[in-house]
Design a protein around this nucleic acid. Structure first.
Lengths: 233, 233
DNA sequence: CGTGTTTTTGAGACGGGTCAATGATGGTGG
DNA sequence: CCACCATCATTGACCCGTCTCAAAAACACG
C-alpha cells in the first residue's frame, strides 16, 4: 500500500498534478516495491503490464542484440516515470543499478486513471517530451563522437544528473566536484557504445592528464570541470 | 488559412482527437506552409516558437557538433508532429528532405489550445511515447551495430516507413520491394553515424551479393528482404 | 555538351575492438 | 581477522573495420 502523503518525490513526480482527493485514489491502485541492485522490474519484449514512479535509486533502461551486445538507452532517477502506458510492448528492460524503491501500478489501472485525469497526462507528456529531447541529444554522442568525447560528455552529464544525490560540489571551487557513480565500468561502456577496455583506458588517460582523480572504483573526482566540458565536443 | 476538413492526414494526425467544432477552432490558429527540399522550418538551439503537423513530404530532425559533424536524430512523415510544445528550446533543427507541406501553429497558441483539449494532448502523448520507443531502438543501432548491420536495418526500416508512399511491394513476392529513398548518401550516413564512403561501399557490397539492386541514385530494389532482416542483427 | 555536384572506388592510416594476462577489490567463511 | 575466491578493472599487444584523403566516374542541369 502506497502512502503518497509521505512520499519524498511527491512534489516532483507526475503525481504533483493531483489534489489530495485524486492522490488518494491513485494511492489505492499503486504499491511500493523495493528492488535490490541488479534486479529487473521489466523485461525487454514482454508486453507492457506495469508502470511505475521511481521513489529512490537509479535504474537503467536497456536493449540487447540477439548475440548479447547491450545498449543502455536511458537512465532514470527519483521522480522519473518508468514504463510504457497506452498499449504496445516494452522495447527495453528496466533494471535497478542501485538498491531502489519504486511505486508500481498495473498498466491497465494506470491507463484508466490517467485518461480520467488530464492534468496527470499533461505532466506525463511534459516528462516524455523532455526524455525524448535528452535521448536525441544522446544520439549525437553515439553516432558522431569519439571515445574521449564520449567519456567527457558522460562525466559532465553525470555531474548534472547526480547533483543533490551522488554529486558533491564545493561552492568555492565549482570547477571541482566529486561523483559517486551508480555504474560499473561495463555499464558505462553500455551507455556510451564502447567496450569496457576503452572506458578503462579513457579513465586512466584523464587521470594522467590531471582532469580527474579516481579515489575508488565507483568514485570520480572532477578536478577540471571546464576542461571536461571543452573535451565533450 | 488551414482547412482541416479537406486535410489528407486529418484522420491520422493528432487532430483526429477533435470534433468538428474544436477542429475549426484549431483551424483558426494554424496555417499551411510549403517547404522545398532543403529548406529549414526550425533551427537547432533557437527557442521553440512554432510547432506543426506534417501534411506531406519527409523532414529530418538533426543536431550538429560545433565542428560540423551531423547526426540525424529523427525522420518525420505525413501525419507526424513536429516541434517542442510546453517550453524549452529546440534541441534539433527541422529540415525538409523532400518538397513538403506542413500545418504550422505558433507554439504559444498551440500550447494554450492543447491545455484546453485533453483528447488532443492524449494523442500527442501517445505519439511522443511511440517516437521515444523508436528513438531508443535507434540507439542500439548507433551504439552497438556494425556498418553492415546498420545498412540492413536502415533498408528494413525504410521499407516499413515508406509503405504506401515511397515503397512498392509485389504481393506475389513480398521478399522483393522497390523503395524511393528521400535521402542522399550523405544523409543516410548522418542517420546511421557513418561516413558517406562507408555507406557507398555497403551499397555496392549488397548489390554484388544480390541482396539489392540500385536502379538509380534514389531507388533501391530489395531482392531478398528476409536476407536483409537477418543481416540487420 | 560543359560544368558543378554527388557518388563510387582506391590506398593507406588509425581508433577502437579483441584477446589474454595481470592487478585490485570486496565478500565469505574458517 | 585474515585467507581465499569470485568479480571487476586495468594494462598490453595485436588486429580489423571504419575513417581519411584523393581521384575517377556517374549524374543532373543549364
Amino acid at each position: 500500500m502506497a502512502s503518497c502523503d509521505v512520499c519524498v518525490v511527491r512534489n516532483r513526480a507526475i503525481c504533483s498534478a493531483l489534489d489530495s482527493r485524486e492522490l488518494s485514489a491513485l494511492n489505492a491502485i499503486g504499491r511500493t516495491r523495493m528492488l535490490e541492485a541488479g534486479e529487473s522490474l521489466i523485461w525487454e519484449g514482454e508486453d507492457s503490464v506495469l508502470v511505475a514512479n521511481v521513489i529512490d535509486g537509479v535504474l537503467k533502461l536497456s536493449t540487447n542484440t540477439e548475440d548479447g551486445r547491450e545498449q543502455i538507452v536511458g537512465v532514470v532517477y527519483p521522480s522519473d516515470f518508468i514504463g510504457r502506458p497506452f498499449g504496445g510492448t516494452t522495447g527495453h528492460g528496466v533494471t535497478a543499478l542501485t538498491e531502489a524503491e519504486v511505486c508500481v501500478f498495473s498498466r491497465r489501472d494506470f491507463d484508466a486513471f490517467a485518461r480520467e485525469h488530464p492534468a496527470l497526462e499533461h505532466k506525463l507528456l511534459e516528462r516524455t517530451l523532455g526524455e525524448l529531447d535528452r535521448t536525441r541529444r544522446w544520439m549525437l554522442l553515439l553516432g558522431r563522437k569519439s571515445a574521449s568525447e564520449k567519456m567527457a560528455s558522460f562525466l559532465v552529464e553525470m555531474s548534472e544528473r547526480l547533483t543533490g544525490s551522488g554529486c558533491r560540489v564545493d561552492p568555492a571551487s565549482p570547477n571541482r566536484r566529486i561523483l559517486t557513480l551508480p555504474f560499473s565500468r561495463q555499464q558505462i561502456a553500455d551507455v556510451l557504445g564502447l567496450t569496457i577496455e576503452t572506458v578503462s583506458r579513457q579513465f586512466t588517460r584523464l587521470r594522467n592528464e590531471g582532469v580527474i582523480d579516481i579515489p575508488s572504483r565507483r568514485e570520480v573526482a572532477i578536478l577540471d570541470f571546464d576542461g571536461l566540458v571543452a573535451e565533450a565536443g
